[in-house]
Design a binder for these strands. Sequence first.
RNA 1: GGCCCCGUAGUGUAGCGGUUAGCAUAAGAGACUCUGGAUCUCUUGGCGCCAGUUCGAAUCUGGCCGGGGCUGCCA
Length: 561
Amino acid sequence: MTNVEKISSDFIRIIINEDLKTNKYNGRVYTRFPPEPNGYLHIGHAKSICLNFGIAEEYNGKCNLRFDDTNPIKEGEEYVKSIIDDVRWLGFDWEDRLFFASDYFSKMYSYAVDLIKAGKAYVDDQNAYEISYNRGTVNKPGKNSPYRDRSVEENLELFESMKNDEFKDGEKVLRAKIDNSHPNMNMRDPVIYRILHAIHHRTKDKWCIYPMYDWAHGIEDSIEKITHSICTLEFENHRPLYDWFLKELNIYRPQQIEFARLNLTYTVMSKRMLLELVNNDIVNGWDDPRLPTIKGMKRRGFSPSSIRDFCRRIGIAKVNSNIPIEFLEYCVREDLNKTAPRFMGILNPLKITIENYSNDLIEYMDVINNPEDPNSGIRKVPFSKSIYIEQDDFMENPIKKFYRLSPGGEVRLVNAYFLKCNDVIKEDDIVKELICTIDHDTKGGNSPDGRKVKSTIHWVSLKNAINADVRLYSRLFTIENPSGKKGQDYKEFLNPNSLKILKNCKIEPAVSKLKKFDRFQFLRKGYFCIDPDTTDKNLVINQTVELRDRWLKIKKKGEPS
RNA sequence: GGCCCCGUAGUGUAGCGGUUAGCAUAAGAGACUCUGGAUCUCUUGGCGCCAGUUCGAAUCUGGCCGGGGCUGCCA
């Protein structure tokens, strides 16, 4: 533990450092990531995953992957699989430590029996409404249940009957006997077992009673000898209960620590809302690239390392915060800039005919795959008489500070020639084609006479271009905090233009060799990846994020505001 | 009217009684550039408020103000 001092310290690591110093857990650091398999993982879970697995790694400890599957009504195998997949994709390894709360159901049952024997739990016949009503409110103490003083024997018998399928759902519950006037609502005789005749995805019909979170979670942590049980802020008020159970049971007690969950601007992070977007076909499934789900982000083109970097940079604290989504975008660009090969693709094509170029000639230009990565090598890109450039890269009447192509103006075609525009062909006042010439002496991109050109644009040879659908994504919502407007449904703020599909984009041939999910940069346009919808006949490309665009700012400044 | 947690540049964080209050991002200016990308340089900008303790407070104490959470047989 010599390098402990060097680890940057958020408040959790400070606690761990202190525990190490006082030898609280004999030098062990043991965490867990405990998802409930009732939904797909999102970037908020990634924060927790990076925290728990990251801490284990830094302190030479271990981190378990444990499914908190105590509610068969909402949970299922589909979610288990996707979660396992996602945690692995993010780059973490739980080795042989994949656990399920349901593995501990027998143990939890016998602990409940112990609690009854100790006179600390009882079977309550009140229905859900009565229990809730008698619990009181935050400023009104609750009333004891008329069944609270049953004998230990009767409780034992009834609890066993509950387990043995002798009652209907909701007919009885097991409650801890604590204090119905406790200022902390969680301590007012919380329910610890309920009757649920549901098929559990792992234990099938073995049980008809299921433990509640508060009862289950501490026991799971205790069984696994977790040292630091890290959870989100809303469980702060549950900590006294967590501690109470383990103390009454007289078993190993980990320390629960709460941190603030992640919020991102222009999106929603609640499982309920994500589920609703998916089920109502507002988005196209859990892996829709507009979603902040791990599957969506993977499909959008985010790399695992960019997500990990993001989680590291945002830090850990107890204040609720709302991270600008631009920060996430910064992190992908940062990663992809160094790792993504560059290709040329024309999203909105404008045809150019080069008058002074041979009709049938095709030249192959040497192009560096990634100028940021010296090991990335070079490739050959075909050039010919007819090429496409981006519509945006031409202005018939250029505004000031527009350095790209305009009539009479000259630009560089990246890695090819200087190009000059001589004539504009229009139909109905719309620019259809440009007639241009190249300077043959500038092959490769430099002029022997030292002549400079203010702009360099990208291009694709018409003859060699392959077509693709390019899907452009922007924020799913139109306001920063769609779920935070009181009295208004978050769906009112959906962005109708969050998905834009461009057909017949013109792409350089090398892109056809890429595999699904491969990430790359379209030169000057942004980062993209191959969508899994791609077939032999149809190339589908997703935009991850645009490049930083200074031109946008310059243009805006030029406009009267 | 109860209980718990939290307030450091626009945003996210570091600081643990003595610092020119650090870092990142955003914003602004400039340099460089075969991506208006990347890179580099500079600038602007912060301790919620009021007392107290102390030679000395962002840091300790108290009060106030502000924000969040808690009244499922969800997790």
